[in-house]
């Protein structure tokens, strides 16, 4: 029962942030050069996600082949130790399948699939720790890993969660906050205001939806900038090694 002041009248949240502040965002790409074609590691607050992309490659089932474009496969594996209380998860848990499908649908539009017909691109995500904003972190990690793998995309998809506390919108929620209010997760295409992903599982009054989306989109743009920064940093590093 949340007896905590999730958003105090003085404008501070339970971890000291204000309503429109992101948590610590840290990311790396190309973390597993040998075991995957593209890889990334994302930390949003205490949520830690590893992503490994392999592909485009030949599909294991001939039946899975699609001659018009690549088949994208997402595989999220949430470690049983990722939450405060250990919970053993089966591979076919509904929640996991739902995450997979959501991510597949999100990236289907952004990856230029027609460039890779009759191939499979499989994205494997490992969740090591969860503290709120899971889907957003998975989205961000996938974006980075796909970029690292050199798979053509139209733009970045940056994800963030935002919630409504009474009538105040709050950006980037941690677990405590997620359990105490309705929240949504969005995935924004690059610097535009177009959404590739919008997931809302509770109820939010329509009048407040606009404000909530506004701050969430702003937050996503900041995430996109941070991701872009890391990609360029890494690229420069690689490039510097080529040039003598």
């Amino acid at each position: 029962m949340s007896r905590l002041e999730l958003y105090s009248p003085e404008g501070l949240r339970v971890d000291g942030r204000r309503w429109n502040e992101l948590r610590r965002f840290d990311c790396r790409i190309n973390t597993h050069p040998q075991s995957a074609d593209g890889s990334s590691y994302v930390e949003q607050g205490n949520t830690k996600v590893i992503c490994m992309v392999s592909g485009p490659k030949e599909p294991s089932n001939k039946s899975q082949q699609n001659s018009s474009g690549a088949v994208i496969e997402f595989n999220v594996s949430i470690a049983s130790f990722s939450t405060t209380n250990r919970k053993k998860r089966s591979k076919n848990e509904k929640r996991t399948i739902e995450l997979n499908t959501t991510l597949e649908r999100t990236f289907e539009q952004s990856i230029i699939r027609k460039l890779y017909p009759r191939t499979t691109i499989s994205v494997n995500l490992h969740v090591l720790a969860q503290d709120g904003g899971l889907l957003a972190a998975l989205t961000n990690a996938s974006t980075l890993a796909l970029i690292d793998a050199g798979i053509s995309m139209y733009d970045y998809i940056s994800g963030i969660s935002a919630g409504l506390h009474d009538i105040s919108p709050l950006l980037d929620l941690n677990t405590l906050e997620e359990s105490g209010m309705s929240f949504l997760t969005i995935g924004v295409v690059g610097n535009s205001e177009k959404l590739s992903l919008l997931l809302l599982e509770d109820k939010i009054p329509l009048d407040n939806l606009e404000d909530l989306l506004a701050i969430a989109i702003a937050g996503s743009h900041r995430i996109r900038d941070l991701m872009d920064q890391e990609v360029r940093r890494h690229a420069n590093l690689r490039a510097s090694k080529l040039v003598k």
Binding site: D15, G16, R23, R24, G45, N46, T84, N85, D131, N174
Partner: peptide, 11 residues
Amino acid sequence: ATKIVREHYLR
């Protein structure tokens, strides 16, 4: 005996 870890932001 649950170990609880929370972020704490200082400003």
